[in-house]
Design a protein around this nucleic acid. Sequence first.
DNA 1: AAGTGTACTGAGAACAGTCTGAGACGCGGC
DNA 2: GCCGCGTCTCAGACTGTTCTCAGTACACTT
Lengths: 226, 226
Amino acid sequence: MSRVLVVDDEPGVRTALDRGLTAEGLDVVTASDGPTALRAALTGSFDLILLDIIIPGLSGYRVLQQLRAEGVDTPVLLISAKDGEVDQADGLDLGADGYLVKPFSFMVLVAQVRALLRRREAERGGSGRRLRLGELVVDPAARQVSWRGCPVELSPREFAVLHALVSRPDTVLSKDELLRLAWGGEQAASRNAVEVYVGYLRRKLEVVGAGHLLRTVRGHGYRVGA
Amino acid sequence: MSRVLVVDDEPGVRTALDRGLTAEGLDVVTASDGPTALRAALTGSFDLILLDIIIPGLSGYRVLQQLRAEGVDTPVLLISAKDGEVDQADGLDLGADGYLVKPFSFMVLVAQVRALLRRREAERGGSGRRLRLGELVVDPAARQVSWRGCPVELSPREFAVLHALVSRPDTVLSKDELLRLAWGGEQAASRNAVEVYVGYLRRKLEVVGAGHLLRTVRGHGYRVGA
DNA sequence: AAGTGTACTGAGAACAGTCTGAGACGCGGC
DNA sequence: GCCGCGTCTCAGACTGTTCTCAGTACACTT
């Protein structure tokens, strides 16, 4: 399921977009100000960002600029009340992938979103995007994990478990959820297998000094966080 | 230099776009009707297509539809006099990458064109031309490979495998992907053939001291990288 | 302090992925 | 025909991975 970050300071617009896009089958996360949006977007865990230009803290332009400067290439669809052509040209030159002028039709929005997601899907081999969580980098294309630039060798299953956790940072995943995400439909393994693999991961991450990343939430599951 | 196909039936618009985009440093080719446009676009030799919807012979929608059906994924920017939202949504759902409503600002057009070209540039590492990866040079035109200037003789299949790997540096390619890339659609060979050819390549690269370049990522595939 | 449920860990068996040598097959040149 | 070359399969050796089991450690409750 594709993940979309919606950034807008008006609660009405935010919830409308949230509901509408969720109904379209997307996984929606919202943010209402610039710094929050930037922090979320920098994880690289989104497939698309809907970014209002006029938001508190840090303008949409600046958020976009920072993202591109940090090497995050998630497609961005700018949203603005202004329809000045200069603004639009500026936004696109900053690295945006589309521009919508308020008030916009929801149909057009969805069509644009789908067009961008479709292209992204076609380009990535489906292997997924590069994830960052602080100093931790998880790169599905290269099947590599590193902490502070220090590479960590993982077996396929170990990688799958870590990937599942890192793609939902600060979220507790139960053992059953991890079995579903990292083992797939078969689910041939027991819950203990999850414990074992978390143990393997901790041991390997400990070597490079990142053992504290995987936290146990007793009675619930596991979580990674900054 | 990026190649752009401009499709519009009004001679005035066509020449204006031709001159304007040429001034922006692009290689522009024009077409005035649907069948001509489709024939040109199907060659796949363009980096971007500006496509008016209302053109003689075959509508822009149909041209786009045909292109996508034939597997040509060149980005398409639709141009239309209609600004109906339904039309816009339809166009985007057909596989367009953007939508401009006449009359449009030339600045906005250029910004959109640049945004699409930039992304395309970033996605494809450039096939067909000479590849370099550190000290390794792979020249598809000359079918030659060398390490630190030292030539390595490869059979056609060996070359295809190495080329596939080098054109996606730091990316793990599974055996199935390599079969698709280096063997083509037929896929007459088994996965073991890939292992055998990687072995051949390693042996030949080892002779010139580059045996370490091809790395096995157990359970995933193979990867070349620095 | 004892009891209970949960989480962690070491050992090891079964399994899957990888590498390699031997050899079959087809093709073009001599 | 015979040879060399390139392609590919097969089978065996080897190695890393996966997962369970059984025991231990820990935390929370009564």
